[in-house]
Design a protein around this nucleic acid. Structure first.
Lengths: 353, 353
DNA sequence: CTGAAAGCGCTTACAG
DNA sequence: CTGAAAGCGCTTACAG
């Protein structure tokens, strides 16, 4: 009934414990014959290595690093917070996580930060990445050193990481498009989008998905050219005012950050304001939802992403199969299905956008 | 740097390892003085018990049971599947999970099944519950035996369980109401709801939430009395046809199961069909979404719930603090943000509704 | 009330 | 290429 141990395997194979261990862990220096015997015994008994015992015996500590863009962006504050939180609550499991800030959205800065990682003894790193071939060399060096690497929120070059933990941004844009379309209830309208920059892959993908759905399923809606904002709240504020003044808009969709500016502009609007969709649930977007200045928030659930980053990195480090994990899905929030607000006041004070 | 062990604590406190262990684990038979000394040492060193080592040494196995309604309901099939899946992938961690089927929605059957649990040696059970005082006695007996109990999907009497793992059904209903309201784009309309039975607390709560939002925020919508369906696809099919024939409906919301019947009725509809919201993403609701027979699915993410049930039960059994966990939130699916379909064909074949 | 010792399933030198 | 033995941080009898 109780699962077989390595001793059982060794006995069944007619070899010593140490030899059985050698083949289980591919330590080499074992006769072909012994390998075969052990393999058979493993199969016959259905042996499965006890990772907890292994970790205990070797005093295993998982040293993880998270490379996150520097700056006071509300979303990344939330990410940072979740990392610290998760790490603290994994104390028992001997996992340490260090947050390393890198210059936001700059290839060279990221490249340097990744190189710096080589000097440190991390077992795994999660990186908010960029699509740039320049990152491939330092990432390869990391991998050669045996460090597990995953892309987080924004992907790295595919070949350079073991996994990507983040949402499908085309799907996110399509979802926004669907909701904007539905909210017109069959009527026509004029829709304005905002983006930080088209160089940011996630922004571009969201716009693409959004456009796809509008063109295909809601042809009665006119889609205006996107306004670029650099994710700056000031810019967003000015642009929103101007857009609202110029023509009759029925919907607004911001694929990027800087929402506090957009919300402020909307707040001054008299009469009916356009239907409004933004990304990421943070203090001010939550409040705007509750106060009815916006209608929908599409969120990528950074809490779930961080949780998953820990799980995936641990699995990669242990070289064991990844556990089954629910898909990461763009989550739609309205004012009625908001999760409880778990931010402390102290954290709130630090957040702006 | 490396965390202190119980030996460190014992040494610092000037007592033997065994005595330190006694106070850490409240085993009793320790002099007040020793207790105090150990407590001080623990505080001074910041000792935290290594659960993995403890489990290893005592050959810990977590034996879990899940009490799930019997029957071929697609949603509970999905739940069952996730339980087996999760259990299988926790093999390394020595967790076993047994699914026990109980007569669906019958207080007496559930009562008996809970009593039967007393004869078995489970460490923790998750129960798809009912609100009935009749359950309190057997549940109290379970608790007295030291078994951890949580309510799953549908809650048990509050005092009788350590936690509830499921969504807030009022919020789910409100969310549906919000979406239905938005989809009218400011126009008037006539809305029909369906429910299995008002005795089912979750159904009643969803209707309540739905009504709240419509009355408050969309007064131009006329809400017809709910039609009772016993969650039976046949009944739903007949009732939907009849309702569609009778008056001009602009929206449909089914708070319960039996959606295949509703979808079939909708499928035959010519011209524009009403906006349609149902609960739970399963094979046929997913397909209906993709084929545009319905517009929205509100899902409670059974995968996340099951995952959480394992985590919470383990924490309760270990008597350790619950790790921080993202709120369980009613998830909105449109055809654009569907997760990849992970069901195998074999599982699909077993599913109907 | 207290302590010494074996054992949980592994890994890691060390000796052959 | 192979094996015996100590140790990871705990729990569990057992002896005092």
């Amino acid at each position: 009934m109780t699962s077989p141990t390595l001793s059982d395997v060794a006995r069944a194979a007619g070899v010593s414990y140490a030899t059985a261990d050698r083949v289980i862990n591919n330590r080499g220096n074992v006769a072909e014959k012994s390998i075969a015997k052990v393999r058979e015994a493993v199969a016959a008994l259905g042996y499965v290595r006890n990772v907890a015992a292994a970790n205990l015996s070797r005093g295993r500590v998982y040293r993880l690093a998270f490379l996150i863009p520097r700056g006071s962006n509300a979303f990344f504050n939330r990410i940072r917070q979740h990392i610290e939180h998760t790490a603290a609550h994994q104390a028992t499991e001997r996992v340490t996580a260090e947050v390393i800030e890198v210059a936001a959205f700059a290839v060279e800065g990221l490249q340097d930060s990744i190189s710096d990682l080589l000097e440190r003894d991390f077992d795994g790193v999660a990186i908010v990445g960029l699509q740039s071939a320049a990152l491939e060399v330092p990432l390869a060096a990391l991998r050669d050193k045996g460090v597990a690497v995953v892309g987080l929120v924004s992907d790295l070059p595919q070949a350079a990481r073991a996994a990507y933990i983040g949402i499908d941004n085309i799907a996110a844009g399509r979802t926004a498009g669907r909701m904007v379309g539905l909210a017109h209830g069959g009527r026509g309208g004029r829709v304005q989008t905002f983006a930080g920059s088209l160089d940011a892959r996630d922004h571009a993908e969201r716009l693409t998905g959004f456009r796809e759905v509008l063109q295909t399923d809601f042809p009665q809606l006119e889609l205006l050219d996107p306004i670029m904002t650099k994710d700056d709240a000031q810019v967003l504020n000015a642009q929103t005012r101007q857009a609202l003044g110029q023509t009759e808009l029925t919907a607004l969709y911001n694929v990027g950050a800087g929402n506090s500016g957009l919300i402020a502009a909307l707040q001054e609007e008299r009469g009916t304001r356009p239907f409004c969709v933004v990304h990421e649930l943070v203090a001010h977007s939550r409040q705007a939802l509750l106060e009815r200045h916006i209608d929908l928030v599409i969120d990528q659930r950074p809490d779930v992403e961080i949780n998953r980053a820990f799980t995936v990195l641990r699995a990669l480090i242990d070289q064991k199969e990844l556990p089954p994990m629910p898909d990461l899905v763009p989550t739609i929030y309205v004012r009625d299905n908001l999760p409880a607000d778990t931010l402390t006041d102290k954290m709130k004070a630090k957040i702006d956008d």
